[in-house]
Design a protein around this nucleic acid. Structure first.
Lengths: 319, 319
DNA sequence: TAGCGCAATAGAGAAAATCTATATCGGGAG
DNA sequence: CTCCCGATATAGATTTTCTCTATTGCGCTA
């Protein structure tokens, strides 16, 4: 019951008048009398001199005043701080992301997020899917942005579909046709961007299932290196669409469709501990990501209608 | 009701366990549940993640933690501060004193006070009785040490009897006899120490009533100057006993009794606003002054038995 | 799957805070 | 000098809130 008492103390001190203070606090005067008495009881000293012309601080009251102000001040400040956080106008956003997501999709997202919530400080840690899951479980990060994963403690909030696309260099024989079949592709030098990525196995399976063995392959450990390899005509590569949008648009790489039109996409999600509610910056980030995911989804619903305009949209979303 | 809630918050945070915290606070677990819920309600965010293995802070909880600590900390600190003050182990003692009191009686008092309450900071202002009264009324000082005065707002707490005594230089004709009558004294050059002091009029009245006019007088504006005048054989003086104790004891001045044994004493009191309770340093000072006053009173009850020993006591009390 | 530990919930009972009405006190005006 | 005004204190009834007991529900572990 002490808070109100301290607030009373401050109000009475400020107005020098019990009745006036009571009015201001929407209370009756006897209530204030009682509260102050209780406070004085608790502290062991009278805080006010009661006169017929109002209330005046005693020495003890004067001594206690700064503490009272700090008490109420701290509380108000704390409340403000939480409100700030709730409106994502402050606080910290800690994100873990797998390399592809962190490098290509996240910067665009964070640019928008930072614009909308300039006072939130952001930290990003990178790691492979399993590491991201771990970080999320341990609350080292609030959200883990990676491919969909299952864990009883974790819920996955879908962000977007990440699709593997075939890119070649502009002078490549596929470029003019804009399309190729798996057999043709299998004859090319194939550049793989990450041995640990789930895409690695997925791609290999694709050729295996088509009856193609004997692949000429080259492995590098990051997407950017793979792109440079392709640009230098060392081969062709299956890369995440988000990673090549910009290179394709600038003409450094060319997108080639695949006749068999294989399904090579996976869901990129935000992992979050089930038991930690998404509030403040986290909630704001998820909301933002959702609206952007919807835009992209609608674009992907009609892939045959893909136009330069939609390509630009993608660029806008993820670069 | 917020204080307890914040305390609960801290306890639960510290122990990570509601039931354990409840035990520690001598409450039941449902009570804590309710309190925390109320606090979360007030703040608008959940502060804890409830799991089957205890309670864990949410992001909001982590943010609020330092504020909670400051709230409770400030209160505890304030309480400590007042306790300190109550035991006169801190705070400030503001005293106003008339010149005679401030110069001769007060230093001895304050020496003892400071020894007993080393952490109290002391300030002394000097002025004439009326000014002291004013200061006390305006609470510029907590106590006014001066001659007894009446005012409806003020109560007077007797400190000691200040007595006017006759002092002469060691080579004076009165010295060997140790006694003189008013007529003889009236023939001397009389040195007065403060035209504004109530003693001034009192002394003049003494001679007037004895039928003696035509006094040879010299006026200075402070006691110390008057003493030096007497030492330099410029005359004799009626001075407050407290002001000459040391000079008499060291042989620079000599005390001479007066045959008529006139009543020339006044009560020195501590003036205090009636409506401000004496707490902390003020109370401690008054108590100290009282015990010393009693010693002196008992010494004065038998003036004829005044011995060197008692003189020494006086010295001890007021120097 | 039963048991254990922990937190949430429901409902009764206890405690407290609050209000209305009244007393009291001090000061200033007539 | 008395009355009245503005201030706080006090008393008692009422309402609110808090707290407790008992129980439920959930997740983990043996």
């Amino acid at each position: 019951m002490l808070f109100r008492q301290v607030e009373c103390f401050l109000a009475v001190e400020r107005l020098g008048n019990l009745s006036r203070a009571a009015e201001e606090m929407f209370l009756t005067q006897p209530t204030l009398t009682a509260r102050l008495k209780a406070l004085e009881e608790e502290l062991g000293d009278p805080l006010f001199v009661r006169t017929s012309r109002g209330m005046r601080l005693t020495e003890a009251g004067r001594e206690f005043l700064p503490y009272a102000e700090r008490i109420v001040g701290s509380f108000e400040e704390g409340k403000r701080r939480l409100a700030e956080l709730r409106g994502a106008a402050g606080g910290r956003l800690r994100i873990g992301a797998s390399p592809g997501v962190g490098t290509y999709a996240l910067p665009g997202l964070l640019e928008r997020f930072a614009a909308a919530h300039p006072r939130v400080s952001i930290s990003v840690r990178t790691g492979h899917s399993e590491a991201i899951l771990e970080m999320t479980l341990r609350e080292e990060v609030q959200l883990g942005l990676t491919r969909a994963m299952r864990h009883p403690e974790i819920e996955s909030l879908p962000l977007y579909q990440d699709e593997l696309v075939l890119v070649v260099d502009p002078d490549h024989r596929f470029t003019s046709r804009g399309i190729a079949n798996l057999t043709e592709i299998g004859e090319e030098q194939l550049i793989f961007f990450d041995h640990d990525s789930s895409y690695f196995e997925q791609t290999h399976a694709l050729f295996r299932n088509a009856g193609i063995r004997e692949l000429r392959t080259m492995e590098v450990d990051n997407i950017e290196a793979a792109k440079r390899m392709v640009e230098h005509r060392l081969g062709v590569a299956f890369l995440p669409r988000t990673a090549v949008v910009r290179s394709v648009s600038s003409g450094n790489l060319v997108l080639v469709s695949i006749e068999e039109n294989p399904e090579m996409s996976r869901s990129i999600v935000a992992l979050k501990r089930r038991d930690v509610p998404a509030t403040g910056p986290v909630a704001a980030f998820l909301e933002l990501a959702n609206t952007m995911g919807e835009k992209q989804d609608s674009a992907q619903l009609s892939p045959t209608l893909a136009t330069e305009f939609e390509n630009l949209q993608l660029i806008d979303l993820f670069t």
